[in-house]
Write a protein that binds this DNA or RNA. Sequence first.
DNA 1: GGCGCAGGTTTACAATCGTAGTCATTGCGG
DNA 2: CCGCAATGACTACGATTGTAAACCTGCGCC
Lengths: 129, 129
Amino acid sequence: MAKRSNGPGERISEAEHAIMEVLWDRNPISAAEVCDAICAERDWSIPTVKTLLSRLVQKQAVGTEPEGRKFLYRPLIARSDYVGGESRRLVDRLFGGRAAPLFAQLAESEALTDDDLSEIEALLREMRK
Amino acid sequence: MAKRSNGPGERISEAEHAIMEVLWDRNPISAAEVCDAICAERDWSIPTVKTLLSRLVQKQAVGTEPEGRKFLYRPLIARSDYVGGESRRLVDRLFGGRAAPLFAQLAESEALTDDDLSEIEALLREMRK
DNA sequence: GGCGCAGGTTTACAATCGTAGTCATTGCGG
DNA sequence: CCGCAATGACTACGATTGTAAACCTGCGCC
C-alpha cells in the first residue's frame, strides 16, 4: 500500500488546508481573491497561493471552472468531511480510537471553556434522547 | 522565526510518534527492544528505528543513558503533554480553538460509542461539581 | 588474538512541503 | 495594433520525513 490515490484521497497539508478554509468560506473564487483573503495573514505571495491551488487541484480536493480566461476554484470535498477525517485520525492515533480520552485530555489541559461544557452537555442531551 | 528550538519543542513526526509510543509503554529500553516492539507491526528494519531514535534524541524528545556500551532510551516528554499539545493543535486549527464543535463533529461522524458518551457524561458531572 | 556481531553514527535518497521565481499566453487599455 | 499586466503552467530549492544502507568500534567467542 502506502499510496492511496482513491478519489479525493491524498492528504492535505497544513498550508493547503489554509487555502481550503478560504475556499470553504467563499467559492468559487479566483486565485487572486484567495490571495486577498490570506496572503496578508500568512505572509504569502501570489505564486505561493497558485502553487498550493495547483497541488490541491492535482489532489482533487479542489475543482476549477473557467471564468473568462482565468479559473475559479471551488472545493471538491466538504469541510465537514475533511474535519471529520482529521479528527478521527487524531483520535485513532492518540487515543486508540476512543473519544472519551480525548475529551478527558482537553478537560485536563483546560482547553474547555464553560461555554464548551454547556454546549457539550446540550449535545449529549440531544443524542441521548 | 520558523524554527522554534525551545526546549523539547521540535515537532514530532508520525513515524517518530510511533517510536515514542513504544517508549512511553516501556522504558528505558534499547534500540533493539524498540524494534522488537514495532518493527513487525510497521514493517521497519533496525536501521530505521535507529534513525528515528537519533532524530528524537536530537529533538530532545528522548534521552539516552549508557548501559554497558549500548544506550537505553527513555522519553523526555510526557505522553500527556504530547497528546495534549496535539489535541490542542487540532482544535485550534480546525475548530477555532473551541472544543464543542469537535465534539459535535465526532458525534456526527458516529465516532462516539455509547461507552464514550457515558464516560463523557461522567467526566462532565465531575467537572461541573 | 582475530572475527563477527551488536550497536551507535554518518550518509543517502526519494517524496512531500513550504515558499517562491520564471515562462508563456492572452485579453485589455491606449 | 501593440505592449503590459494578469494569470495559469512549469521550475526551483531548501527542509523535513520515511526508510534504509554503509561504516566504525569495541566485546565476546572460538
